[in-house]
């Protein structure tokens, strides 16, 4: 259970779990309100989630245990998709709120 390959897989899974938690929280704020304070909280959570996703992207499914190659590969692909989606949404929000920040 503690082989380097197992640890590598565990790191990937942790990165998934943390990013999922952070981005889910951000989405709840983002979807539920147009309140600026909440949007800014969401921006901060999206950024933390991105950091976790980036950690996952630095991992290699080939370094995971052979019996977990398929699920690791699939998870990395999905996390990569989510990374792009999060960056896109974050860029929208930052544009929208950057204007108000400079005006204030």
């Amino acid at each position: 259970m503690n082989s380097p390959a197992e640890r590598h897989y565990k790191t990937l899974h942790t990165s998934h779990a943390r990013s999922f938690e952070l981005i889910s929280k951000a989405l709840k704020l983002d979807e539920g309100s147009s309140d600026e304070t909440k949007k800014k909280e969401a921006i901060s959570l999206y950024k933390k989630g991105l950091t976790e996703l980036e950690k996952g992207m630095a991992l290699d499914w080939r370094l995971c245990p052979p019996d977990k190659h398929e699920r690791a590969k699939s998870l990395i692909e999905k996390m990569n998709g989510n990374l792009r989606a999060t960056r896109g949404r974050l860029s929208d929000l930052e544009k929208q709120y950057a204007v108000k920040n400079t005006a204030a």
Binding site: S19, R71, L75, N82
Partner: peptide, 11 residues
């Protein structure tokens, strides 16, 4: 895990 990541992307 993959479905959870997909769900976020869709939202």
């Amino acid at each position: 895990a993959s479905q959870e990541q997909d769900e976020l992307s869709q939202r």
